[in-house]
């Protein structure tokens, strides 16, 4: 069984490619939902140690909105969408015609718009992955939290923390209405699922 930090170049490239295709599909889905063109930069897939990942995403204490979905089926894991304020405002201005300066202003309507967007990006990502690797994956209903980034990120970390000290982050920029906003996704399969996935994709070097 290989953990994240033991992957070779070919295996990492394959994961990067999945990240690219998955976020590309997510951008298309977002375009349809927002009714405007959403483009996306080439995503950066990184495998980092916990503390490094939290710093990379913008520090532990910054407040953010997180949408979390659990993956079951042939692959088990967690996927988390981190929605920082610029992204939140891009969504809210398109859907509800308003922007916020503070997360306190998120009421039920705003929150459910963000949950929906998070759910759509995660589902399209997982659908792309599932058809590429020809595996079945089921997703739970999304859960939503607004709090310190560090605490939100440790949820997927703690879930599989007994297996690995590393986590996979997929970072990209969405471009919509001349705004460039960062979007961060965390995909955390358990170790067995990671190996199964690489095997199905035909790149696992055992």
């Amino acid at each position: 069984m290989k953990t994240f930090d033991e992957l070779n170049i070919l295996e990492l490239d394959t994961i990067r490619e999945i990240g690219s295709i998955g976020t590309g599909n997510a951008a298309t889905a977002l375009s349809n939902m927002l009714g405007c063109e959403v483009r996306i930069d080439v995503p950066e897939v990184r495998i980092m140690e916990y503390n490094e990942a939290i710093d990379w995403i913008g520090g532990p204490e910054a407040i953010t909105a997180g949408v979390l979905v659990r993956i079951n089926g042939e692959v088990n894991g967690i996927m988390l969408a981190v929605q920082q304020i610029e992204f939140v405002n891009m969504i809210l201005s398109r859907i509800l015609g308003k922007e916020i300066t503070n997360y306190d202003e998120l009421k039920e309507l705003e929150s459910s718009a963000l949950v929906e967007v998070g759910n759509i990006t995660i589902s399209t990502f997982i659908n792309a992955l599932s058809s590429l690797a020809d595996i079945t994956m089921h997703l739970t209903v999304p859960a939503f939290a607004v709090d310190m980034q560090g605490a939100i990120l440790t949820v997927p970390m703690a879930e599989f923390g007994g297996q690995s000290d590393y986590i996979m982050t997929i970072g990209s920029n969405f471009i919509c209405d001349h705004r460039v906003v960062p979007y961060r996704l965390l995909l955390s399969p358990d170790v067995r699922s990671l190996n199964f996935l690489l095997k199905k994709l035909g790149v696992l070097d055992e």
Binding site: Y50, N51, I54, G59, P60, A151, T154, V155, M157, A158
Partner: peptide, 23 residues
């Protein structure tokens, strides 16, 4: 103090650890 980390301090110093969620 980071995640999965520990620090000691004696007589002076402010130890701080950020964003404890389930931790």
């Amino acid at each position: 103090v980071g995640i999965a980390d520990m620090k000691l301090a004696q007589r002076q110093g402010m130890l701080i650890t950020y964003a404890l969620g389930s931790c």
